[in-house]
Amino acid sequence: MAAGGDHGSPDSYRSPLASRYASPEMCFVFSDRYKFRTWRQLWLWLAEAEQTLGLPITDEQIQEMKSNLENIDFKMAAEEEKRLRHDVMAHVHTFGHCCPKAAGIIHLGATSCYVGDNTDLIILRNALDLLLPKLARVISRLADFAKERASLPTLGFTHFQPAQLTTVGKRCCLWIQDLCMDLQNLKRVRDDLRFRGVKGTTGTQASFLQLFEGDDHKVEQLDKMVTEKAGFKRAFIITGQTYTRKVDIEVLSVLASLGASVHKICTDIRLLANLKEMEEPFEKQQIGSSAMPYKRNPMRSERCCSLARHLMTLVMDPLQTASVQWFERTLDDSANRRICLAEAFLTADTILNTLQNISEGLVVYPKVIERRIRQELPFMATENIIMAMVKAGGSRQDCHEKIRVLSQQAASVVKQEGGDNDLIERIQVDAYFSPIHSQLDHLLDPSSFTGRASQQVQRFLEEEVYPLLKPYESVMKVKAELCL
């Protein structure tokens, strides 16, 4: 049975990233139509530049190519590739079939990587351009969430054990800070992308030097003109047959890092959902379990974690691919890159769409948070109580021993009897502590235990987050809708 299948058929496997999760716009960027249309555009740009620099290419040939950029006979191309065992030459023939007058000058002087690699770089750039505003929107939604809850005390956790208090907004800023680093890295790697350009079979530009009869300047002009037509500021000066596969490492490393950030955020949300302090959106008709109707599973956060793990592992592909590119190139890269580049971007696209949807509907339960604080705060307040007693004339050592005994009794009630923490009640009825009984409410005010959390939130948002989001103001209103 021949390899390949009808990918629109229910009898043929289709990647869930495309069929179930990723956005239509990201799927289109990695589609065959987008790819092969870009090949034709690159052939047109090459012909236009070659004509401008004096090669015998007519206006009629150029116009014929322009008129057929979208006229792609995919069936013919597939048949040609089956016959020739070469995808680029299959599309040269297919393009030439609908451009008979231009057929002889299509791909003039070029090698397969002229269309293959340059198209990949265009796709990487455009895919990054799709991700950047999506990530900015996630940051914006979380920034709104953090600002609104900047002063809401909550129990902090280290080692997932109760620690000092923080605020809900401050905790959210930990998430935002990681995503801001990801946004900066995505922008950097996007701006650092260079075009492969017009380089020939081993990167020496020998074929173009021959076409222009040894004119170095025209060869350099050709490279520059096509690079500018493709919208790049610069091209690699040095290439082998391909652009260095280190570029793929750079791009997928940034995406993998984004995956790590999203995994951490969504894990926190899942843990908070278990504590009943916070939940992701839950639709009115949504079913959490087929057997347990009360369940409210954090399905979206779980999906993000599941896909983020996949995204983090994909960076190993370009690392290994770059390491086995012998001399000017081997074909070890080809099949692998067809999979890992598309999957990385479709996965990143999915987790950003999902995280935006989550961040637009996060639900906080202040009463649950308050109750958990009441359970733990008495123990945390013991040092403040000791200091207040010393100020009232008591002995630190005597007070410490009193607190120690009462704390152990209260802990026994919590752990052995399943009761509430009654340390404060014990202190309130103990005559030894009568000098500070009137101060206990103040000493137990949760806001006095959150330090500068709310001020940190305000400063972080104003100095770091809002300036970073400013270039994306025009796209901030787009909502994230999930079908599944």
Rank of each mutant, 00 (worst) to 15 (best):
S9P: 11
P10Q: 12
Y13W: 08
Y21G: 10
S23H: 08
C27G: 03
W43T: 09
L44G: 12
Q51M: 05
P56R: 05
I57A: 12
D59N: 12
E60A: 03
Q63D: 15
E64M: 13
N68F: 01
E70G: 14
K75Q: 00
L84C: 07
H91T: 00
H93G: 11
G104A: 09
T111G: 06
T111Y: 08
N118M: 10
A127F: 03
L128G: 04
L130P: 14
L135R: 10
A143D: 13
Q164M: 08
Q164C: 04
C172G: 13
Q177Y: 05
D182E: 03
L183R: 04
N185T: 02
N185M: 10
L186Y: 03
L186G: 04
L186A: 01
L186M: 14
D191K: 04
R194N: 09
G197I: 00
G203I: 01
Q205S: 08
A206L: 06
S207R: 04
F208C: 11
L209F: 12
L209Q: 09
G214N: 02
D216G: 11
D216L: 03
V226R: 06
K229W: 00
A230V: 06
G231S: 08
F236C: 02
T239S: 13
Q241N: 06
Y243W: 11
V251P: 07
A260M: 13
H263G: 12
C266I: 09
R270T: 15
N274Q: 07
L275K: 03
K276C: 00
E283T: 14
G288A: 05
M316C: 08
P318S: 07
W326S: 02
W326V: 05
R329E: 04
T330S: 11
L331G: 04
E343P: 03
A348F: 01
T350I: 09
P366W: 10
V368C: 11
I369C: 09
L377A: 09
T382C: 12
T382F: 15
I385C: 10
I386M: 00
Q397M: 00
C399Q: 05
Q408L: 10
A410T: 08
S412Q: 14
V429C: 15
D430P: 09
S434G: 12
D441W: 04
H442C: 14
S447W: 14
R452W: 04
V465G: 03
P467D: 01
L469A: 12
P471I: 15
V475W: 15
C483F: 10
